[in-house]
Each structure stands twice: as C-alpha cells, then as structure tokens.
Nucleic acid binder design. Structure first.
Lengths: 145, 145
DNA sequence: CTTCTTTGTTATCATTTGATAATAAGTTAG
DNA sequence: CTAACTTATTATCAAATGATAACAAAGAAG
C-alpha cells in the first residue's frame, strides 16, 4: 500500500502527542516532594544518557550553561547526581546519577512499570510481539539517534 | 517470538524518550516571540483536542483552574484562541483555536513538516509503509485513548 | 608566550509558572 | 426554595525557570 509522506507526517505528530500524553499519565501520580519538575526532567534524561558533560547536557536539553550548572549543583547537593572529572581535559566534568539518584529514579520507573503492567495485563503474547516489533521499526527509522 | 512484558516496558520507555527528543528537535528552532512555552503547549494541545472546556483542559494538562483561566485569557487577548459559550450549561465555555491561532500553529507544523520531509527524503516507499503500519499498531494498542 | 576558544561557576534580575483564597454565577439534589 | 456542587474568574504571593554579565581555569592555535 502506498503511503504519502504528508500522511505519515500527520501520523508522526499524532504519535508524539500520544507518547507525551502517556508519559504525563504515567508520571503524574509521582511523589515529587524532593525535586522540581525541571530537576526531574534532568534526572530522567540522565537515566537514558549517562554520563554526560555539563555542556552536552545544556545543549541537549536547551538549558543555558549557567542554569544547567545551577540545577546540577542543586541535584548534587541533594545527593541525586555526581560529578566526575575528566582525566584528559581537566575543564570537563561528567555528570551521572549517584547511587541515591539511581534509587530515586528506580522508584519512579517502578511506579510507571506498575501502571504499564496494568495496561498490558490482558494483551495476548502475539499482540505483545507485534507491539515490540512496531517499536523496533520506529526506533530504527524515524527515531534513530 | 516471545516478548516479556518487562522488556516491552523498557522499549516503551525508550520510545517515549525518543519521541520527546524528536519533538524537542523539531520545535527548538521555532520563533516563539509571541507566546510563552506553556502557552505554546496549550496551543499544541488544542490543535489535537478541540474544542474543550476550561476544566477539561485544566484536568488534561495538569494546570490548576485559576492558572488555566489566566493563560487562556492571555491567549485570547493575543487573538490565538477563543471561547464559545455552551448553550446547554451556561457555566461552561468551550475553548478552540481562533483563525489566528490556527494560522499560528500551521506555521509551526509547516516548520516541523519541513524537517520531517528532510529526514524521510531518502526513505523507500516500502519502508514508509512499514513505519506507517508500525505507528498504527502502537496507536491502536499501547497508545489508545 | 600570547591570544583565542572551550568549559564551567557565581551572582543577579526578570519572567513564567504554581498555589491558594475569595468571589460569582449557573446547575443539581433535597 | 435552599443547600451543595460545578465552572470559571480575579487577585495575590511564592517558587521555579530563563537571561545576562562577569569571572576563572584549562586547552588549542598562532
């Protein structure tokens, strides 16, 4: 079957909206006493891309260096992430989640996992395989890094 | 092939992260002089779910009623959305994009479309069909409303 | 060595966003 | 009719985030 690129664009927009909504639904019940929304976003980002330098993080998330530095400092003070000096270039500092940060995010993911399991509880194995395959297709094409 | 739900959860998390990144990349170059980030989010939401009452919008986006009211007022003042009184329940007001708002968002989507076309320029028709099918699968299962 | 660039920090201020209380008008249930 | 609830608004304050300038240290290039 022939698929126009225009139609595919519409599908992609819809997909992005749905993914955003799903993420919102899965995280909205979360505790969040300890950190601000932006700080949570940073922790989520770190749990995917780790370790990363401050300037890369700044670039990737669209936050200015001064503000990134400030937020990382706060997260470090809270024991949720840590800085590692680059041995080659002594200006650089790699950021990664600390043990506490990993634990903190593990809780979040556990919460999401719970909601997810509920949602796919009655889904057949065949269908699960279809979904898995579909995600693989998208990751390897549209969503390739 | 057997797919564990646990593995599928990991895939979904990765999918959400990729979709978020894609959205970020496609919108980061955008003009944004006229509106704040939150206001843009609202306009994006409206272009998908329209019309919608203030309280529904508040609920869906996780913004308190007073703050939703304030932002919608600002958007209305800027001529980007408009309120329509519900004839049945005179407390309710439906919100939708105004002609100006539709035009404003059309520009945004045109920008995204341009980037998208660039990205899928060299993709074969067969592959496009695969991607389209993959999105359909996800929308009808994982991402069903 | 000197100059330029990159990386990161601190301080400061403006803007945006969140939270809460008080109010008003319309609807629903008793 | 009255009381309770829903929908929306306005006002106000606090917190989070964005923007900018000034600075310092390390590396790269000449």
């Amino acid at each position: 079957m022939m698929v126009s690129k225009e139609a595919l664009f519409e599908q992609m927009v819809s997909l992005i909206a749905s993914a955003h909504q799903l993420h919102y639904d899965m995280t909205k019940g979360l505790p969040m006493d300890d950190i601000t929304p932006l700080q949570y976003e940073i922790l989520e980002f770190l749990s995917v891309k780790q370790p990363i330098t401050l300037s890369q993080l700044s670039e990737c998330m669209g936050i200015s260096m001064p503000n990134t530095s400030r937020e990382i400092k706060k997260l470090t003070d809270k024991g949720l992430c840590e800085k590692i000096d680059d041995t080659e270039d002594r200006r650089k500092q790699y950021i990664r989640l600390s043990a506490g940060g990993e634990a903190r995010m593990a809780e979040s993911f556990a919460h999401m996992r719970g909601l997810f399991m509920q949602q796919v509880n009655d889904v057949s194995d065949t269908e699960l395989a279809h979904i898995s395959e579909a995600i693989k297709v998208l990751k390897s094409t549209l969503l390739r890094d």
